[in-house]
Amino acid sequence: MADMSAEIGLDPVVRLRVLAAALPGSTLVTREIGAPLASVWAVVEDLERYSPLYEPSVASAAGEERGGRKILHMTYKNGFREDCVVRLAAGWCLMQSPSVVVAFAARSTKTGTLLVHLEHWRSPGQASFAASKLEGELLEIERLAQSLP
């Protein structure tokens, strides 16, 4: 896999912590995943295939390229639909819809992968996402990554 920091110019994990600093009320969780970075990132970056498996509210996600941008058409289990703009790079995934910001950042460690996950409601007055929700998603991502050949 390409060198993470070279692609963006900054360690993706540091980048996400900087982003979180600018989004008051955002929830940020970290997990040391017991799987190599390539496996973890194969799960994270394939949003269409895997996001419905680890994100409990998502029924389906369909991607398209539009005007040089990646758009993810999200359908939620409650019937709500919205589009996310996605920025993807090695170790960096940032998604923003009108209602929510979701991000992942990853780097390789001696024992596996450090994966950091952020979620943030864009509407003022919304309660922050529970850390336990995000931690559950990271656990599921770990399971999916470990199941890859």
């Binding site: 963006i8 900054l10 980048r15 900087v18 982003l19 600018a22 920025r87 940032l94 991000a103 943030h120």
Partner: peptide, 11 residues
């Protein structure tokens, strides 16, 4: 609070 703008500003 536009996260895409924040990301671009960081770059």
């Amino acid at each position: 609070g536009d996260a895409l703008a924040l990301d671009e500003l960081l770059e």
